[in-house]
């Protein structure tokens, strides 16, 4: 063995952008992608339809078993392509109308720092959120790995609830957090960091800082852009027994609380993305 080689632990490694089994199990339509030669094999088609419909494969078992007819018909590839081509053929040469994508609400979308706050603030970072959004979107074939800068109506925010900024906005450029080149649709995640970067200071001051991510998301207007927001933590879940002191026990509790909240917030964010994807399906875009 070469003596010059050394162990080099990796301090950071990105999460891969393909789903884990657990994530894929929530999208049974993933398995509608069937090898071409299987489609020509009647027995295999029967076994596949049976396994999906009867819930024998785990991704089907998470839902009520669907009738066999609900499974994508296993049709020869030529016909498949012909159908797809027909569906995608443009009917007119007019440019498509810009999409106004609604904000899908999952999570209260607020958080605060300061003396009156009863729980430590927990927010998702831009990176954590982008990972969740990209993963979930990829499950439906939406690839947000691209980049794009657009013109958008950005909400003016204020950390102290100053009413003069409640409905203010500014026209500005916005570098999207992700963009699907093929669909021409991007996404923006409204994070705590965004609230700070969009804020304007008024005359008010307070020892409590409020971060209104949901409100800001609803006031952000950009064509062909899905706007998601930080769902925020559930402060009611914070129930530390102060008799244990405010030393190590408190730190350990806060760490555990933060981890649990982040898990729940990621799940709420996934719900936002799933609603958006369902909306896209309803529009016939995917």
């Amino acid at each position: 063995m070469n003596r010059n080689l050394e162990l080099k632990p990796l301090r950071r490694y990105r999460d891969p952008e393909y789903p884990t089994k657990e994530e894929a199990d929530r999208s049974p339509e993933l398995l509608h992608a069937v090898p071409i030669r299987w489609k020509h094999h009647p027995l295999l088609c029967s076994v596949l339809v049976f396994t999906v419909a009867s819930g024998l494969c785990s991704c089907a078992s998470k839902k009520q078993p669907e009738p066999a007819s609900a499974v994508e018909p296993l049709i020869p590839p030529g016909e498949d392509e012909a159908q797809t081509g027909q569906q995608n053929a443009p009917e007119t040469s007019d440019p498509p109308a810009p999409l106004e994508i609604p904000v899908f609400a999952h999570g209260i979308g607020r958080g605060s720092y300061g003396c009156e706050s009863v729980a430590p603030p927990v927010f998702l970072s831009e990176e954590e959120a982008a990972q969740v959004i990209r993963e979930e979107a990829l499950l439906q074939g939406v690839d947000f790995s691209g980049q794009k800068t657009i013109e958008a109506e950005l909400p003016v925010t204020n950390l102290y609830g100053d009413e003069q900024f409640q409905n203010s906005s500014v026209r500005s450029t916005l570098e999207l957090d992700g963009y699907d080149e093929a669909l021409g649709i991007g996404f923006e995640f409204v994070s705590q960091k965004d609230i700070v970067s969009w804020k304007q200071d008024g005359n008010m001051a307070s020892s409590v800082e409020n971060y209104e991510m949901k409100d800001a998301a609803e006031r952000l207007h950009a064509d062909n852009t899905a706007v998601f927001y930080d769902p925020g933590a559930d402060w009611r879940a914070f129930s530390y027994n102060w008799e244990n002191g405010n030393g190590e026990a408190y730190d350990a509790y806060v760490q555990s609380f933060t981890e649990n909240q982040k898990q729940a917030m990621k799940e709420q964010l996934r719900e936002q993305v799933r609603d958006f994807l369902q909306w896209l399906q309803g529009q016939g875009i995917i």
């Binding site: 089994k21 992608a33 090898p35 396994t51 024998l56 494969c57 785990s58």
Partner: peptide, 9 residues
């Protein structure tokens, strides 16, 4: 790939 990696059957 999808069938091999994600289909238990």
């Amino acid at each position: 790939f999808l069938q091999k990696e994600y289909n238990d059957m």
